[in-house]
Amino acid sequence: MKSGLKRSNAPIFWGLFGAGGMFSALFGPMLVFITGIAVPLGLMLPANTMSYAKMMAFAQNIIGKGFILAVIALFLWFAAHRIFHSLHEIGIHAGVGAKLLCYGSAFIATVISAVVLLSLGF
């Protein structure tokens, strides 16, 4: 049975937006604090917290891989969706180009992350 109506792809983007928004709301601030402030300054956490050996071990673990991919990909899908829909607010009548630019960069980043994570081995 064909209904002649084209199925909307909006739920996919909205779903990624919701997941990324929730994930960044729950973990974003602490992640920024750990990777961008505490480790570089040697505060609170052991000095070798993000050493090459430790990070490789984390990125070769299947749970670690999933977490890294979720952080990078979902954060970017969330941001892409929100930025795309905010363009209207600043007077840019976003078309296909803007959509490709926003979601396209999130897509490319997701692919790059997945490729690197797979290449690091298990």
């Binding site: 960044s24 992640l31 954060f75 969330f78 941001a79 930025i83 690197v116 994570l117």
Partner: peptide
């Protein structure tokens, strides 16, 4: 609150660069 997405994106891009550097070996990661 909508513009906070720009900062979330910027942070994710820094992490993406980090992941790529990790894949390039110890010197790149350091």
């Amino acid at each position: 609150h909508e513009s906070t997405a720009l900062f979330v994106a910027a942070y994710a891009f820094i992490l993406l660069v980090g992941l790529v550097r990790l894949g390039q070996g110890e010197a790149a990661w350091s």
